[in-house]
């Protein structure tokens, strides 16, 4: 079980760490100063949440690995995030749509984790749920502004949704790790999270006058460490100093 819990905690952590990395790439380049601040703030929230989870993952593993060890010294095949969060920022519509799809999944997940039998995950989710609430508010508001703004913003938002939709299936994957922890009352069942995701997406897209893409082929593999090519570049950048100067203190 501790093996499954380790993997599950890494999945939660890696989603946030990789998304934080992507959002931090916007720093200094946002479309307006308020959004620059909002994205940086969000990157910081996710970084904090990821650190809590990585520290816990290290404890569960019991090999003495710190949050930094897990972040900086695992390779591409050992990362467990969904492919959605590693997708490039693209234009602002892509960034917002990626945030929105993730938030529509992440907020109900955090709510459900509050009832987990694992006290540490409950504590971590307790803090994250507040942040996830305003993250979803921020991304939803922008989806609506884009969808119901100008023709150009509508088109860009629709394209972003269409491009990213294939990565949403993986958010609700039912594999052995998930099933084992579900049975133990640690991980919430995917069904209700998916239902909450659907209801948020449908409601927001309706207000945004955007079309929900058809469920076609769904890309998977991230949860098992089979990523898109993008992750390798993210890690090459993120891990550069730790790899170039092994063992140095910073």
């Amino acid at each position: 079980m501790s093996n499954a819990l380790f993997t599950y905690t890494l999945r939660l952590a890696d989603d946030l760490l990789v998304l934080s990395h992507r959002l931090s790439e916007w720093c200094g380049h946002g479309p307006v100063l308020e959004e620059d601040i909002a994205l940086t703030n969000r990157a910081l929230d996710h970084l904090g949440e990821a650190r809590n989870l990585l520290q816990y993952a290290g404890q569960v593993e019991g090999q003495g690995r710190s949050d930094d060890d897990l972040a900086f010294l695992r390779n591409e095949r050992q990362y467990r995030n969904v492919k959605l969060v590693e997708q490039p920022n693209g234009d602002y519509a892509h960034t917002i749509a990626r945030n929105f799809l993730f938030d529509a999944y992440h907020l109900p997940l955090m709510h459900a984790l509050l009832k987990s039998k694992d006290d540490q995950l409950v504590a971590i989710a307790g803090k994250a749920v507040k942040e996830a609430t305003y993250h979803l508010r921020h991304s939803s508001e922008w989806m609506v502004r884009f969808g119901d703004g100008t023709d150009e913003s509508h088109q860009r938002a629709q394209t972003a949704l269409d491009d990213l939709w294939t990565f949403t299936g993986e958010l609700f994957v039912e594999d052995d790790v998930q099933k084992e922890l579900e049975k133990a009352g640690i991980a919430p069942a995917s069904g209700p999270i998916k239902a909450a995701f659907d209801s948020t997406v449908n409601e927001v897209l309706k207000e945004a006058t955007l079309k929900r893409p058809e469920d076609g082929f769904m890309a998977e593999g991230g949860r098992d460490g089979r990523h898109t090519e993008h992750l390798g570049y993210i890690l090459a950048e993120m891990q550069y100093l730790q790899r170039a100067y092994p063992g140095a203190e910073w």
Partner: peptide, 13 residues
């Protein structure tokens, strides 16, 4: 420049 359409969308909405 890249943010122009974003700001325009916000104003239009």
């Amino acid at each position: 420049e890249n943010g122009r359409w974003v700001r325009e969308a916000a104003v239009a909405y």
